[in-house]
Nucleic acid binder design. Structure first.
Lengths: 145, 145
DNA sequence: TTTAAAAATGGACTCTGTCAAGTATTTGCA
DNA sequence: TGCAAATACTTGACAGAGTCCATTTTTAAA
């Protein structure tokens, strides 16, 4: 069940070395970009084309095996953790991203006040802020000026 | 007070024709991209460089005079309406974006459960769905197949 | 009116991501 | 096990959005 190859078969997705390697990379390093996933994969199986990485990530997220998040101004990030409606906290300075659970409840803000006729299928919540490291940086810069 | 030139002076931003024109364009067409703002401005004052548009939009949003939103996979959008913590509803198919007020309250989801040491300054909520027009489209396509 | 600071221009460039044509793998079936 | 059809992968060109930088122009203060 948690065997990657098995997971793919369950979804009728042909098993390839590239797909397994990408799944492993996403799992090992949550919140990675396509580019860093490609690097990780190359370290494992030697080589993969950029296109294949995008293909695989597309197939996996279409099937709900991974989740894609796209913070404003940053390249898309991919993560393993699906199906639990958690959100993200992104550092404005360095882009480092961590998971957060929303304080409001299980499906926070999923209901908009007046849907304007839209059929809403997902609410994406991104918290913007400054991570501990970057706060130290800016503090020391501010005090030295 | 609502005079654009006055607004700029209040923020110690030099008044230029480009800035006034960009402000007007953002105000006239909320949820525009930088590119469509550039077109609008050219219609008004004849010419503006891409760089100037980005500069002005950057200065204005740094000063809180406009707000930048960047839905995943779409170019950044700019709007006039600031300071009231409203959210957005974006069509997955055509990208059309409308404002929504959150049902939860005044500052919905602003508090994450456990901030991981981050200093949070903003919560961005984007509702994803399908707009009325695109729903009709896909319905008619589905029934004809 | 002069001048230093700030902004705008124009053009090259980077970074993500996509398209398309050809080659290689996977899988189902004999 | 071997073969054929379907599916993936590779390579290289391309596109959109935004940034960098050197130069010219404009602003605003003296």
């Amino acid at each position: 069940m948690s065997d990657p190859a098995e997971l793919l078969r369950e979804h009728n997705i042909p098993v390839t070395a590239q797909r397994l390697a990408v799944m492993k990379a996403v799992s090992d390093r949550p919140h990675s970009t396509a580019e860093s996933i490609a690097e990780e994969v190359r370290a494992g199986i030697g080589t993969i084309s950029r296109q294949a990485v995008y293909n695989v990530l597309g197939v996996l997220s279409d099937n709900g095996l991974i989740r894609r998040i796209q913070p404003a101004g940053l390249p898309a990030l991919y993560e393993d953790r699906v199906g639990d409606n958690h959100h993200h906290l992104v550092c404005r300075t360095c882009g480092k991203t961590v998971d957060v659970d929303c304080a409001v409840g299980e499906t926070p803000c999923l209901t908009a006040a007046g849907d304007a006729g839209y059929e809403i299928d997902e609410a994406e919540v991104i918290h913007w802020g400054t991570c501990p490291e970057c706060r130290k940086e800016s503090d020391s810069k501010a005090s030295s000026s």
